[in-house]
């Protein structure tokens, strides 16, 4: 990976969706959305349930490929490469765009193996991987809790720990982008707070896109926020602007809690 020599203020987007539409059969779930995700910052996607925000997120690493009734139109550029271009392999895409899911989904393997599995299958593992395990777990703020039991099953961890392990698993691949699909929705408030702190820390090194139904969470962790409504991108801008001076009436209604 070569570092692009760019001015951070006007950093070119790492991820760029252009005129992206997603259909489930005949229903349009995402309606021609164009969105730029800036480098090393957190971009939040908010909106009422069913607004297409999760579907949109899943187009960014082609996770919708598994659903045969889903049709995607438009382009997504990841570091200048259209991931929907013909000849591009979804497996390769996912190697560099990590994902964290709603519910923690550690593999039924040991903690260490959870982190190393992606590297191993992709042939990205040099040496025995102890270093990667330690670094990833440290970055995910889990190292102190599990360093003595790296070979225990990941299923014995608590929900919050499991979710941090899933984050460690994603960043172990040194991804260009980490997608997070409501990563705290299955967690208690304390674990949620820990994950939010973690996201803030990771933002200095990673590009993160987070979908959340929790507006306060978006306000706490993100630099830029996109508001989705009925499959459309209604408003996109700095989080502060969205939450203090929303331009669109729908956004305002949602922010002030007048819309579900």
């Amino acid at each position: 990976m070569t570092m692009m020599n760019v001015d951070l203020q006007s950093a070119p987007p790492v991820l760029e969706a252009r005129d992206l539409s997603v259909y489930y059969g005949k229903t349009c779930a995402v309606n021609s959305v164009s969105l730029n995700v800036g480098r090393n910052q957190v971009t939040a996607i908010i909106g009422p349930s069913g607004c297409g925000k999760s579907t949109f997120l899943r187009t960014l690493n082609r996770m919708n490929d598994f659903n045969p009734s889903v049709r995607t139109e438009g382009e997504v550029f990841c570091r200048g490469k259209n991931i929907y271009a013909s000849g591009i392999d979804a497996t390769e895409i996912r190697r560099s765009i990590g994902m964290v899911f709603q519910k923690p989904n550690p593999f039924p393997k040991s903690i260490a193996k959870n982190i190393l599995w992606g590297l191993k299958i992709n042939g990205m593992l040099n040496g025995n991987g102890d270093e990667v395990v330690e670094r990833s777990l440290k970055q995910a703020g889990l190292w102190d809790e599990v360093k003595d039991r790296l070979n225990d099953s990941a299923l014995n961890l608590s929900g919050g720990q499991q979710q941090r392990l899933c984050i460690a698993r994603a960043i172990a691949m040194s991804p260009s982008v980490v997608l997070m699909d409501e990563p705290c929705s299955a967690l208690d408030p304390r674990s949620t707070a820990r994950i939010e702190d973690l996201i803030n820390e990771l933002a200095t090194q990673y590009t993160i896109v987070i979908v959340t139904h929790n507006m306060q969470q978006a306000a706490r962790v993100s630099k830029e926020t996109a508001f989705f409504y009925e499959g459309k991108l209604v408003e996109f801008g700095s989080t502060q602007a969205i939450f203090t001076k929303p331009k669109n009436k729908k956004t305002e209604e949602y922010i002030t809690g007048r819309m579900g």
Binding site: D89, T91, E92, I121, N122, G123, M124
Partner: peptide, 10 residues
Amino acid sequence: MLKSVKARKR
């Protein structure tokens, strides 16, 4: 070294 995706696909 990245494992060739092609071989894995095959």
